[in-house]
Write a protein that binds this DNA or RNA. Structure first.
Lengths: 253, 253
DNA sequence: CGCCTATTTGATCTGATTCAAACAATGTGG
DNA sequence: CCACATTGTTTGAATCAGATCAAATAGGCG
């Protein structure tokens, strides 16, 4: 249904420089000093538009740069030997999904676009220089890595121990909460330019089953989701259906 | 079968001071300078023996200290609202499973012992002082967090997309590889003081099913596992059965 | 118009769960 | 030292959530 038609721009916030996306994200995590903001604004990066479904970095690669998502949605994933895909995370503007390549030589999974994206690439050397100059940013990035891990655990809990309906409801809650935290929502609406197959691969289910469960959530008046836009119709009901408790997102600081 | 009988000591390596467990772990990750080693040896910590199945930190807690595993096995877990448990990780000597509490105020999951353990508690303030004094250690710990995340992703892939037999074989491979990396194996043997229920909770399966699949792996001559000791009888066969590729453990440096 | 991708529906199958009970090993108190 | 409780493992039978297979529908787009 035309999800690929979704423009690079993901609902409001047209950033001038790609650096602004990173600064905004970090400011949602902690207060930045003027000096830190300056240093981040001066961080050299090369912006590039990429269409949907393109690999950015592949399992086994040894990158010398990191990738900042400026606009659009990206995801991290890996295939089973039998060819089944598991998506580990969806990433939104301001995220640096492969920050790990700064400390882990070889990629243990792949990174790709899900919607058309504007990306910005940052050389490791520049990132290292920045962190040497502004050591407190190390703590911020480290903290971000920790939150990343917390989200992985929550997904694991869902995949391992919750039924399909709960999992999907929880997923919608999480995506909405995360997008809200970076100012990408509009009332009860949030951009969600994904296919049902991608959600299935993220939740460890089949596309067919996602479809059926999705109809259930719609029928129960909890959500609407069309034209790449998720609308949460009944926040409390959805949270209850998804056993959603946002503590694990650590948005408090 | 008497796993609770397992002594606090987990196969060789009786550490003198608890600090040595931490130093040994970090040295398996990177070379330490003499100064770093000294600083780590001087890190104040309070050792304590704890019996099996005890909670150390609970979801919702706001710890002011971290916990180092000196001997024994610990695990991190969380319950579903319906009371189902998912275990996210097993931790072995040298690990600091709740290092995240240094940067995330409230625990989003619990930490407990699985076997009798010797633990050592380190006040956040002391850890912070150490990292201020030896900034390179921040990178080591951050790297450790990243590897933690990588392991979470691999578990997610298994739970979401691999069948029970593959999952269990993979699990045995991983535990063996990790224990080997910290010098806790003896030929093809490694301590594994877990119950089938704990493995089930880690792999998102039922105890009954773990039992049946385990019998399969035994019948096929891939592993033996008795008296809390895992014996890998056919490393290549087990790795193949588990689709095991250790890249994600990032043991190379 | 015709192609491609995504969604939807129906029918069937199966890996894994659940329930229930037996069995085995260890530890405990009298 | 035995009776008994406790915890963990094993087995069998019934059931089910979700997968798989197959095909129809529906938009968007060159």
């Amino acid at each position: 249904m035309g999800r690929r038609t979704a423009p690079v721009q993901t609902m409001n916030h047209p950033f001038r420089a790609p650096n602004d996306a990173l600064i905004a994200k970090l400011e949602s995590v902690a207060d930045l000093t003027a000096r830190e903001r300056e240093a981040l604004a001066a961080l050299p990066m090369r912006a590039q538009d990429v269409r949907a479904d393109q690999d950015i970095v592949r399992e086994g690669d040894r990158p010398s740069q990191c990738c900042l998502v400026v606009e659009g949605f990206a995801c991290r994933f890996k295939f089973t030997e039998k060819g089944k895909r598991q998506i580990f995370a969806f990433h939104t503007p301001g995220d640096v999904p492969d920050l790990l390549s700064l400390h882990l030589r070889t990629m243990d999974h792949s990174l790709g676009t899900v919607s058309p994206c504007r990306l910005a690439f940052i050389q490791h050397e520049h990132l290292r220089a920045l962190l040497r100059e502004q050591p407190r940013l190390v703590d911020l990035f480290w903290r971000d890595t920790l939150i990343d891990g917390s989200i992985f655990r929550e997904w694991m809990l869902g995949i391992g121990r919750r039924d399909a309906r709960t999992r999907l409801a929880h997923f919608f809650c999480e995506m909405f909460a995360r997008l809200e935290a970076v100012g990408r929502t509009d009332g009860g609406r949030a951009p969600l330019p994904l296919t049902q197959t991608e959600i299935a691969d993220a939740l460890g289910l089949s596309t067919v089953h996602i479809n059926r469960v999705l109809q259930e959530l719609r029928r129960d008046g909890l959500v609407a989701w069309e034209d790449a836009v998720l609308t949460v119709l009944d926040p409390a009901g959805l949270a209850q259906a998804g056993e959603f408790d946002p503590v694990y997102l650590h948005q408090d600081r």
